[in-house]
Design a protein around this nucleic acid. Structure first.
Lengths: 347, 347
DNA sequence: ATGAAAGCGCTAACAC
DNA sequence: GTGTTAGCGCTTTCAT
């Protein structure tokens, strides 16, 4: 392991000079800079980021904390955030906390959090989803440079990147209504998730505004997996035979629904329409391709990264970033899973 | 920021003692241990892993280097490796290098590598895929404690976790043959990927062993995306009308194929059978559910993690792990996308 | 069983 | 523009 000191000796300068040519090259004369650069090349020197962190009291790293690595949000968020952070000389550290409060030991959660903070992250990006998760909120409050994607926390709105789930639900209802659907079933997500209750509420309210009531027996619960969508659909088919459309709270469950409908011989969209949520990769892979409410994940990740950078210690840098967009709106991506029903005056 | 020294003062002991009660509690008397534990609780002390790394000359962290974070392998591998590494007090650091040699600047690649090594990772798990990637191989050779998932490198077989892609190709062919198929198209992956060429070779060889030739005009190329599967399938349908089956080099492309066949009104599996590769999540989400060659990703990740741990510096630990399985075999997961053709004596 | 002290590799005043 | 030096927070001999 070559150290700064080795390089310094070889170049015939002090360690400070080597450090300078590495960090602020403009402060060192070009001739000495050349000597140093040479020595670095010869020795194959690589700086030790750990020592650097300790000495400079700044780690130039930002944590990304998710519920589970298999979440469909995780990869795109990780991709965009690392890209941006790298552009600014920052590293990313990832940890997972477990998908639900109950499923995960608080030990796991604490370990994840500790793993991040003990490594001196300057900010952490919380990938939310869990509601009632006191821990998450506590982390958010206790770590003043953390930002959160997915919910808005009172009194700290400027650290929250959020999405209008309520409006997303409305949009889904509006679309189905416009297409003439009146008998609609909903496959919702866990009641633990705030986003899911908001989606449900927006959907219900929009229907209600059009004098349509979403009956309790038209609501089915899933856990965001393909299989749970399949199971819910089985129940839907058993329950009543006059539904013409299904609103699913995510695309995976919608895919399960589609699969189950195929098996039951129900034609999509002619006998049953379906609309998903998230516009994730799977929406384009199923047949018919799924109409879905899109959440601009990448853009939200982008905002979060900028926010995190702004809040970082090392960000004593003169050039601050412009304040990024914090609130994002849904958009409907029409594909081929919703049918225009023949005009019928009333349900 | 409370430091070890603060804790030591409050407890009325030396920093060494605090350090010991943290790392080797059995070496400190229970009464003093209690004092220290108290002080730690009172101050809310969290150890600084960076300083610890520097002082102990071991980072207890292992790098995971992938081509892209959106790879379908990445999440499951990350999930299993972090789980195992955590169990042994290790952290995981992730980086992405870019998906193909051409698509990515060598700067990006070097940055990724540097990000890992400069942070003193004790081992790195390379998630392979790229062939001809000198850089990857160079990293592997230059970093004696690195391990690789996905290919076997001569002279370092004990650091390689690999999968028998050739046999996978054979298995696919054997299955199709057994089901009576003779006119078969193949959607292969990039020729840059060794795994893909092996899959193709195994497939061809098995067909040849049964006196069936896979003509050049029955081979179509994709890039592992759903869309490329769709595009390839368009070509297949245009090319000839007597294919009865398609072998796709991954499930995403197979999903694209299924989608395109649906659009073209080709019944699956009655008019066209299809078999995928990887047995990834999407295989269960499409309709009909996809028969696929499974790659035991989780098990492979497990092996890699154990291997990495064994090669780590800090692993001066007395208790070594048993040598994990290094070579994995394919398995066919039958679902509903391949039809048993009515017995026809000859093609 | 515990303490003193010397670093780990680097940065950042502060001098020159 | 460059060198000297004092740490950053911890671990780890080496004494006691």
């Amino acid at each position: 392991m070559t150290t700064l000191e080795n390089v310094a000796k070889l170049a015939g300068v002090s360690t400070a000079t080597v450090s300078r040519t590495l960090n602020t090259p403009e402060q060192v004369e070009s001739t000495t800079r050349a000597k140093v650069t040479d020595a670095i090349a010869k020795t194959g020197y690589k700086r030790n980021e750990m020592a650097r962190t300790l000495a400079s009291q700044s780690s130039r790293t930002i944590g990304l904390l998710t519920d589970t690595f298999s979440s469909s949000y995780f990869s795109p968020i990780l991709e965009i955030t690392t890209k941006i952070l790298h552009q600014h000389g920052y590293f990313t550290l990832v940890e997972a906390m477990g998908s639900t409060p109950s499923t995960t030991s608080s030990e796991t959660q604490n370990r994840a959090w500790h793993s991040l903070t003990s490594r001196q992250v300057e900010s952490v990006i919380l990938l939310s989803g869990l509601i009632n998760d006191d821990l998450l909120r506590r982390m958010f409050s206790e770590f003043p440079s953390s930002v959160i994607i997915g919910q808005t926390i009172k009194g700290a709105e400027d650290r929250c990147v959020s999405f209008d789930h309520y409006k997303g639900g409305q949009l889904a209802a509006e679309h189905l209504l416009k297409k003439g659907h009146r008998q609609i079933a909903m496959i919702k997500g866990s009641s633990y998730r705030e986003d899911s209750v908001e989606r449900a509420q927006g959907f219900k309210d929009e229907l209600a505004a059009n004098n349509i009531k979403l009956d309790a027996d038209a609501i089915f619960e899933g856990d965001y997996t393909v299989d749970s969508g399949r199971a819910a659909t089985k129940k839907i088919l058993k329950k009543r035979d006059n539904f013409t459309a299904i609103f699913s709270h995510n695309d995976d469950m919608a895919a399960g629904a589609i699969s189950e409908l195929h098996i039951a011989g129900v034609d999509i969209p002619n006998k049953m329409s379906i609309i998903g949520f998230d516009n994730s990769a799977i929406a384009q892979a199923v047949h018919p391709q799924l109409t879905s409410i899109s959440q601009p994940i990448k853009a939200m990740g982008h905002s979060a990264a900028i926010l995190a950078l702004n809040l970082s210690k090392s960000q004593r840098n003169k050039n601050e970033f412009e304040q990024p967009q914090l609130r994002f709106s849904p958009e409907i991506i029409e594909r081929h899973s919703v049918k225009q029903l023949n005009t019928v005056a009333e349900q």
